[in-house]
Design a protein around this nucleic acid. Structure first.
Lengths: 340, 340
DNA sequence: ACCCACTTGATTGACGTACCTCAAAACTGG
DNA sequence: CCAGTTTTGAGGTACGTCAATCAAGTGGGT
């Protein structure tokens, strides 16, 4: 016995194929009583619509846009590459449009969101900092009928349908636990980031501090210092801290700009006995792990992010439930020995 | 412009649809010259067969069997559950048959493999210890035309098509690195397993030792002790070691039976300042992580294993390339704070 | 009893592919 | 150049679903 088809449903419900079709596709012109009869037949036979046959008949096309951070961000580049790769493999009837906007320009982001032609789009994935304007723009796009998933950085109080990414508080807690377990003596820990205003940084810091104070209170965590994406500023700060804090034992980098941080530390000759933790497995960090300059990277797999967001958008457009276990992105601890 | 179809190929090659079909499905009765012409047209247009439409027309059914370890193995149970879950979601036209055999009975495994009706099976996934007899059985099944993937534990010199699982040497190296970084003082490390004869244990031990000798030579790694799946034996061994070695600082458990190990350690009152590392995230290990009885778990995601093996089997049956980045299972480091 | 709106059935033609048949065309050897 | 064989073309049916059309049926209001 194969899977039941619409024909089986029609027979079981004692109605015609046309009526089954009207019910299944929520077309008008069917009595409530008949609708119920068909639905009961669906239940009884355990019918599930063959999505591929349906898409084939319907000539379905998925048109998705991705909004990713622009420019120097290694992570953004990696994500885009992963997206292209995933797309090239899972691209039955889907059209992809990747737009990159500067993360630090909220205005540009909103402008981009507004400029999207919602008639030519079925779904949108976006990785952008959280602002009220962005939330509004998302709301407008949702009204236009788009499926919307947030990527990496969530917009919790927006009308997005799904979030693909990790819990950044937990990621920060993971960093805290690793730091506490890795350092061999007591001392001070430097925390750096690009900008504390981005949601991921805030959440990571929160998680990091929670674990440090509750489990490793003998260690001192210094206030977050911001580089604002400026290499010179980063170098200056690191120099200052190294000069003033002679008991520096660890550095936790919450955002991007890790390459800059590393070279600044190298310049100070401080890398040997320092525990350095950072986020996201860029090519530079991969190398740093291999050279033992970085103890561990807390990462999320960009390939996974790409595939999950594509699958989630498709499920949303098809109106089928998202297979959550598959789309749950894990907080990966990457060491020299388990580099993927 | 949509994707090219068989019709486009026919037009481009200047042949009929029937001929295109004969070429694409390797049916006889086509001149070499014509075959080449069609293939060139395929190349030029970048035609890719729509697998779903093809399966629809062909009434394709995938019939897969999974051979998993039997019995007490928590990991086996978890994998089976994950398989059922993945199956319930990805089960268009596929039939699944999960068979469980005792891992420590090579004869039973071979008997099971021989008893498979190859006429009613398209693919096979197996997680079994490596023996020459198993390799032979795999060879026989391959001759019968089955797609074969190994799961978790590879059969490197067999005729399997694909391996879904982690590099166990690297997993052992990861454990070694974690152990070296986690312990705060010098001392001795106990390594336990069920049975050193299984391939994963051997490889993990190899990786562990490599890292310990090259990077942490100040630590002493004791010879592997085997429990042979016997809780009493495990308890006795742990008691002995704890009594004799007063500088015990860490325990590395390479196989299953972690619950037994933990209760034995607890009974000796030795859990507080001991770094315990183990493999596979079973419910018991999840709890042990939360209670800080275990410092880290080196794991592979069972959901990923399940989905990847199903997808790999399908790709093999369809004769399409496996999407490797998606099926590469990662060595996960699971801590209290990044528990999935 | 009649009209009209609503509901249902029957039928058809896609979608991209597989697989089958029958006949026509193109080659081959002698 | 013929007979025989091989190769090719044209066409049909099917898979499970969508979408549309048209005819026929139902019932209520007046």
């Amino acid at each position: 016995m194969g899977k039941p088809t619409v024909h089986d449903i029609a027979k079981e419900a004692g109605v015609s194929l046309a009526t089954v079709d009207r019910v299944l596709n929520a077309r008008p012109g069917v009595r409530d009583k008949t609708i119920a009869r068909v639905q009961q037949a669906v239940e009884r036979l355990g019918y599930v619509r063959d999505t591929y046959a349906a898409n084939l008949a319907r000539q379905r096309e998925y048109r998705f846009a991705f909004i990713l951070p622009e420019g120097s961000s290694q992570f953004g580049n990696g994500l885009k590459a992963a997206l292209q790769e995933a797309y090239s493999h899972m691209a039955d009837r889907t059209h992809l449009n990747v737009v990159r906007v500067p993360q630090n320009d909220p205005h540009a982001i909103v402008r981009t969101l507004r400029s999207l032609n919602t008639d030519r789009l079925d779904g949108l994935a976006l990785m952008v900092p959280e602002t009220p304007q962005v939330r509004d723009a998302v709301s407008r796009l949702k009204d236009a009928g788009l499926a919307i998933v947030t990527l990496v950085s969530d917009l919790p109080n927006s009308r997005r349908d799904f979030f693909v990414g990790v819990n950044n508080v937990a990621a920060g807690r993971t960093a805290g636990l690793l730091m506490g377990r890795f350092v061999k003596r007591t001392g001070q820990i430097l925390v750096v980031t690009n900008s504390v205003s981005s949601r991921d940084s805030l959440e990571r810091r929160l998680g990091f501090d929670t674990v440090m104070t509750s489990d490793f209170s003998h260690l001192t965590v210094l206030p977050t210092v911001e580089s604002h994406g400026d290499p010179d500023r980063m170098a200056r700060i690191v120099k200052q801290v190294v000069a003033h804090r002679r008991r520096l034992i660890g550095v936790y980098s919450m955002g991007s700009g890790n390459t800059t941080l590393l070279s600044a530390l190298q310049a100070c000759g401080q890398l040997q006995d320092l525990i350095v933790l950072a986020h996201e497995l860029t090519p530079a960090m991969r190398k740093a792990l291999q050279n033992d300059e970085v103890a561990a990277i807390i990462a999320q797999n960009v390939g996974h992010l790409a595939r999950s967001s594509l699958r989630a958008l498709r499920s949303l457009c098809d109106g089928v439930p998202i297979f959550e276990p598959q789309e749950r992105v894990r907080i990966e601890v990457v060491l020299r020995e388990n580099l993927p």
